[in-house]
Design a protein around this nucleic acid. Structure first.
Length: 667
RNA sequence: GCCCGCAUAGCUCAGCUGGUAGAGCAAUGCUUUCGUAAAGCAUAGGUCGUUGGUUCGAAUCCGACUGCGGGCUCCA
C-alpha cells in the first residue's frame, strides 16, 4: 500500500504501483475522465506513471495552464507523425511548446514543406486523433537491442543524425532515455503526454519559418512548422480570432488607412510621417513634456553627429559598432572634377549617435555642478539612428531611426533609490494614460560584453534590487541582459490583445560619468563622480505609437486623436455655417476640419467613420437656423442636436489625458 | 545576416499553359444641393520593383539585386 497527499491536504491510500489515473478513478469517474496529467511532487507526469509512496499529487485538468502545455506537446508529436506520413523522407529534430502553441523543426532538404500542405497534414492529424490511440512511455537504458529504440531509430529513415546527437548527449550525461509511442510512431521525449490521441482534435497549423539546428547559423537549415492546440473547439476559435483581430489592428495597415505614416524604398526602415501621424507623434511628445515639467526635468538638445573619438570614450565604439552609422567624405578629383573619390577618410571621422547619453554628458561637463542641484535631470526627445540587420525591420516596431524620450539623472549614490521609486510611479502613470495598466517589471544584470569593474557592477545591481524590494515591487530577474554600461530595470506592458511589449527602461551607470571625467562638489567641499541613471518611458516614440495604434485599433481617445472633429455640411448651402462652426471649435482649442466636398452627407459620415474620427458634426438648415450643431459620436452613435457650448462641456474631460488617481509627488 | 514567400495604377487585386495590360476604390471634371456608413456620368492615371538572360516575341520562364511580408537571430 502507498499513501499520497492531495492539494486539499487530505491523503489517500492506494495499492502498490497505482498510477495517478487510479487515484483519479478512486476519487470519481468524472475526474478520471477530465484528468490530463498529474503533478507529482511538483513535476508533471503522465497519468499512467506509477506514484511513489508519500507523494504530493495534484491532478491536472484542462483548466490548469500546465495541462495546455502537455496537450500542445502531444500535438507536436501528432504533427510529426502526420508530417512523416506526408513526407516520408523528412527527418525530425525537436518539437517544443512555445507561447501560444508548439512547433516542430524538420530537416527536409529534398522536399519543401509549405503552408499549402497544411490541409493535408491536418487531415492526417485528424485521422490519428480520431483513432484515439494511447501514448505509451518506454524507458530505455540506451541499449541498442531494445525493440522500441530500434523502431525509433528506423522511424524517419534510420540515419537521423539530429536525434542521434541528442541521444549521444543524453547518454553522455548518463540520463535514462524515454520514448513515447502512439500507434506506429515513436519519438524521443521526456514527456509527459495526454493519455491518448483522442484529446488532440482541436489542432491547427499556423505558419512556417526557417530555423537552424541548435540555433547555429553554421549548422543545417531546418523548417519550423508551427501549430497550436486547445482542449475545445471554442478555445481554438477564440485564439484564431485573436490572431485575426491582431492582423486587423496591424499598425502598418492602420497607418496607411488613417494616413499616419508610410515607408518608402528610398529610406528603408525610416518612417515618413504624414500630417496626422506627425500630430499623433507631437501629442505624445506634448504629454511627456507636461509630465517632465511637473517633475523638474530640464530639456536639452544635443547633436545628431559627433566625432568618432567621443564614441571611443563612451565605449560605444567597442560595444555598439555594428549598430552605428558612420560618415564618409566624398571629394572631387582636383584635376578631373567629374571624377569623385568615394569613401574618403576624414581627418576627424564622425558618427551618428545611436544613444543620447554622451551628448548629455557633454552638456553636464560644460560647467561645474554641486550636490545642491542634484538630482539633476536632463531630458531630450533624442533622435537616434541604429543600423539594423536586414530582415529585422518591422513597421514602426523596428526602425533604423527613432526618437527616444530619453533622460539622464545625475545624482549622489544615496539618491538612487529615491530616483528609481519616482520613476516607477511616473512610468506607470504614463502607461495608465494609454489604458496600458498591465505592467511587468524585469531586472537585467551584467551581460558578457560590458565595461566597468566587478565591484561597480555588484554595487549597481544591488542598488536596483534594493530600490525594487523597498518599494515592494514584484519583478523577475533577466540574467545577462543588461546594457553594456550597467544593469537595468525594464517595463513590459501588456496590451488588450495580451501581447507584451518592452517600453520603459531605467539603467544605472557608474562607468560613463567616470570615463567622461564628470564631477560635482559634495557637501564636504571635495570633488566626487556623480552617479548617472539613463531612462526612457515610451522607449521609442515611433514604436510606442505603433503599440497604441494597435492597442486602440486606431480608435484613439479624444485627447490623442489627430483629428478630433469633422464638420459635415449637408450641402453646399451650409458651407459657410460649417466654416463658422469649425472656426469656433478651433478657437476652443479642438482639432477640427470641415468636409467641404461635393458629397452626400451619408458618404461624408462613412469617410469620417472609416477615419475613426471621434466626433462628426452634421450641419444643415435646422442647425443653421437654430445656431446649433448635430453631433454623432464614433463610440456612442448619434447624440442629436445641441448647442456648441453643451458639446464643449460634454467633451471637456476626454480632451485631456487621464491623470493617475493619486498624482505622484516628484522629488 | 539566414531561410521561405511576394512585388502589376495612389490603394486592393485580375491578367489561364509567353503574343507589349484590366476592374473596384481613391483622384480630377461635370451634373446634382442632397439629413446620419457608398448619388450619376465622364476623364486621367502603369517603360508590370530594378537589371541581366532565354525567346522571333517576356508582366508571364530563369538568374542577380532592391524592397516588402512570415519567421530565426538581435533589440527599443
Amino acid at each position: 500500500m502507498i499513501h499520497v497527499r492531495l492539494p486539499d491536504g487530505s491523503s489517500r491510500e492506494l495499492s502498490d504501483g497505482a498510477s495517478a489515473k487510479d487515484l483519479a478513478l478512486s476519487i470519481g469517474p468524472g475526474l478520471a475522465k477530465a484528468a490530463v496529467a498529474a503533478k507529482v511532487n511538483d513535476a508533471i507526469v503522465d497519468l499512467a506513471r506509477p506514484l511513489p509512496d508519500g507523494a504530493e499529487v495534484a491532478l491536472l485538468t484542462k483548466r490548469d495552464p500546465e495541462a495546455l502545455e502537455v496537450l500542445r506537446h502531444s500535438a507536436a508529436h501528432l504533427m510529426a507523425d502526420a508530417i512523416l506520413r506526408v513526407y516520408p523522407k523528412a527527418q525530425l529534430t525537436i518539437g517544443p511548446v512555445v507561447e501560444g502553441g508548439f512547433y516542430y523543426d524538420i530537416y527536409s532538404p529534398d522536399e519543401k514543406i509549405s503552408p499549402d500542405d497544411f490541409a493535408k497534414i491536418e487531415g492526417e492529424m485528424q485521422k490519428i486523433a480520431k483513432a484515439g490511440v494511447a501514448f505509451e512511455r518506454h524507458e530505455v537504458g540506451g541499449g541498442a537491442g531494445d525493440e522500441v529504440y530500434a523502431r525509433y531509430k528506423a522511424i524517419d529513415g534510420g540515419n537521423n543524425k539530429f536525434k542521434q546527437e541528442i541521444v549521444d548527449g543524453l547518454k553522455a550525461q548518463g540520463a535514462t532515455l524515454s520514448f513515447y509511442k502512439h500507434g506506429d510512431f515513436v519519438d524521443l521525449c521526456r514527456g509527459p503526454h495526454v493519455p491518448d490521441t483522442g484529446w488532440l482534435k482541436h489542432v491547427k497549423l499556423t505558419h512556417i519559418s526557417g530555423a537552424y539546428w541548435r540555433g547555429d547559423a553554421d549548422r543545417e537549415q531546418l523548417i519550423r512548422v508551427y501549430g497550436t492546440a486547445f482542449f475545445s473547439k471554442e478555445d481554438l476559435k477564440e485564439h484564431l480570432d485573436l490572431i485575426e483581430e491582431a492582423k486587423k489592428r496591424d499598425h502598418r495597415v492602420l497607418g496607411e488607412q488613417l494616413d499616419l505614416f508610410t515607408f518608402n524604398e528610398e529610406a528603408p526602415g525610416f518612417p515618413f510621417f504624414a500630417p496626422r501621424g506627425t500630430m499623433l507623434f507631437n501629442l505624445l511628445v506634448d504629454y511627456m513634456r507636461s509630465l517632465l515639467r511637473r517633475r523638474g526635468y530640464k530639456e536639452v538638445k544635443t547633436p545628431l553627429i559627433l566625432s568618432e573619438e567621443l564614441w571611443h570614450t563612451s565605449g560605444h565604439y567597442d560595444n555598439y559598432l555594428e549598430n552605428m552609422f558612420f560618415t564618409k567624405l566624398k571629394l572631387r578629383d582636383e584635376k578631373e572634377p567629374s571624377h569623385i573619390h568615394d569613401n574618403v577618410e576624414e581627418e576627424r571621422p564622425m558618427a551618428v549617435k545611436p544613444m543620447n547619453c554622451p551628448g548629455h554628458l557633454m552638456v553636464y561637463r560644460t560647467r561645474h555642478h554641486s550636490h545642491n542641484e542634484f538630482p539633476l535631470r536632463f531630458a531630450e526627445m533624442g533622435l537616434v539612428h541604429r543600423r539594423e540587420m536586414s530582415g529585422v525591420r518591422h513597421g514602426l516596431f523596428r526602425v533604423q531611426a527613432f526618437t527616444q524620450d530619453d533622460a539622464h539623472h545625475f545624482c549622489t549614490p544615496d539618491q538612487i533609490e529615491g530616483e528609481i521609486g519616482m520613476l516607477i510611479d511616473f512610468f506607470k502613470e504614463v502607461y495608465g494614460a494609454f489604458d496600458l495598466d498591465d505592467v511587468r517589471i524585469e531586472l537585467s544584470t551584467r551581460p558578457e560584453k560590458s565595461i566597468g569593474s566587478d565591484e561597480m557592477w555588484e554595487k549597481a545591481e544591488s542598488a536596483l534590487e534594493n530600490a525594487l524590494d523597498h518599494k515592494g515591487i514584484e519583478y523577475v530577474v533577466n540574467a545577462g541582459d543588461g546594457a553594456f554600461y550597467g544593469p537595468k530595470i525594464d517595463f513590459h506592458i501588456r496590451d488588450v490583445l495580451k501581447r507584451s511589449w518592452q517600453c520603459g527602461t531605467i539603467q544605472l551607470d557608474f562607468s560613463m560619468p567616470e570615463r567622461f571625467g564628470l564631477t560635482y562638489i559634495g557637501a564636504d567641499g571635495n570633488k566626487h563622480t556623480p552617479v548617472m541613471l539613463h531612462r526612457a518611458c515610451y522607449g521609442s516614440l515611433e514604436r510606442f505609437m505603433g503599440i497604441i495604434i494597435e492597442n486602440y485599433a486606431g480608435k484613439f481617445p479624444l485627447w490623442l486623436a489627430p483629428e478630433q472633429i469633422q464638420v459635415l455640411p449637408i450641402s453646399e448651402k451650409f458651407f459657410d455655417y460649417a466654416k463658422e462652426v469649425t472656426a469656433k471649435l478651433l478657437d476652443a482649442g479642438l482639432r477640427a476640419e470641415a468636409n467641404l466636398k461635393d458629397d452626400r452627407v451619408g458618404y461624408k459620415i462613412r469617410q469620417a467613420s472609416l477615419q475613426k474620427i471621434p466626433y462628426q458634426i452634421v450641419v444643415g438648415e435646422k442647425e443653421q437656423e437654430n445656431g446649433t450643431i448635430n453631433v454623432r459620436s464614433r463610440d456612442k452613435g448619434e447624440l442629436g442636436e445641441m448647442s456648441l457650448e453643451a458639446f464643449l462641456n460634454s467633451v471637456s474631460e476626454e480632451r485631456d489625458p487621464k491623470r493617475a488617481a493619486a498624482p505622484s509627488q516628484a522629488a
